[in-house]
Design a protein around this nucleic acid. Structure first.
Ligand SMILES: [Zn+2]
Ligand SMILES: [Zn+2]
Ligand SMILES: [Zn+2]
Ligand SMILES: [Zn+2]
Lengths: 169, 169
DNA sequence: CTCATAGACGTTATGTTATAACATTTTATG
DNA sequence: CATAAAATGTTATAACATAACGTCTATGAG
């Protein structure tokens, strides 16, 4: 993964409402397989299905929505099944938990180490992952000034995306 | 409240584990009364009690902990009672919800408009509110570059405070 | 191939957080 | 006092998450 960079995960930040989502999904699944292989982890059919269900859209999806979708698909499932898969996927950085929504989104660029920073649209519900280095660094530095050592960061903002601003009238 | 600034709410950021917490509480309650008066809102005994319970420490407190404490105090209470008070207090900026913990803390400087930015210690559990303007601004600007208009921000970081770093060995 | 092991998954039950809906009481005000 | 608005009481349930333990399955050693 150090040679060609034909995929441009950062382009997700500029994603429009009518983008080629099939590409998002394909890239996400390909990345997932690479990450799992690299980590010696197993992307079982069940885990893969949960990842696919999360990637059905860019709208954060709750654990029980996933559960319902799995049942709709004929598969027997219970909460622990879903939460285990979510824990596995989050552990590998393949998904992010959105704390303010109790929901999950697929990570747009799971191959690179990063802190999740997310924009949440109150109009369409879509989440957009961004990566503003100065925020992560500013937070780390600001905390360090107080003697606080940051281990993990959560940065979530809500508002209106470009499309939903033009729609609102 | 525009004249003397004898209280230094920002000093909370440097708060030690053995600070004068009585002062924190006294200031918080005084601020609450001022804010309520300014807004024409009523700080009823029940709301005041919830605020006091939240201010028992700097550790974020869950709604049901508050509920239990109210019942311990002999008062009859049910979940909606607590959640209504929390909603009221949060609406006035007197408390902040900590999304990553499903819990609440008292706001250290409710008189000034601000976005909550919080450091959460995994050791002692205490929350420290900080205010790094460049983060709020960087987030707003970074989002604006994508055409996204931010209405609300959540910034939470976990790690170890100074005291808990020295303790850990 | 058989067995031991570890990881994944199934299953049941329960814990935890939050809100809907409607009744009643309190407070402010004319 | 009459009235309306705000606050609170009350019951029930929705929504989110995990504990605990049993079973299955892939894998590798012997
Ligand atoms: Zn997409
Ligand atoms: Zn939108
Ligand atoms: Zn204090
Ligand atoms: Zn600490």
């Amino acid at each position: 993964m150090s040679s060609a960079d034909s995929n441009t995960p950062a382009s997700n930040a500029n994603r429009d409402h009518d983008h080629d989502h099939g590409k998002c999904v394909a890239e996400a699944l390909a990345s997932a397989e690479r990450v799992c292989e690299a980590q010696g982890a197993r992307l079982t059919p069940q885990r893969r299905q949960v990842l696919e269900l999360i990637w059905r859209s860019h709208v954060p999806v709750g654990a029980y929505e996933i559960l319902d979708a799995m049942r709709d698909g004929g598969r027997r499932a219970d909460p622990p099944t879903v939460y285990r898969a979510l824990e596995f996927l989050a552990g590998l950085g393949l998904i992010h938990r959105i704390s303010t929504r109790n929901a999950f989104i697929g990570c747009s660029h799971p191959m690179s180490e990063h802190r999740a920073q997310v924009l949440l649209c109150d109009g369409c519900g879509q989440a957009t992952e961004i990566e503003i280095g100065t925020i992560a660094q500013g937070l780390t530095d600001g905390a360090a000034d107080l003697g606080f050592a940051i281990a993990d960061q959560t940065v979530e903002a809500s508002g209106l995306c470009r499309s939903c601003q033009s729609t609102a009238h």
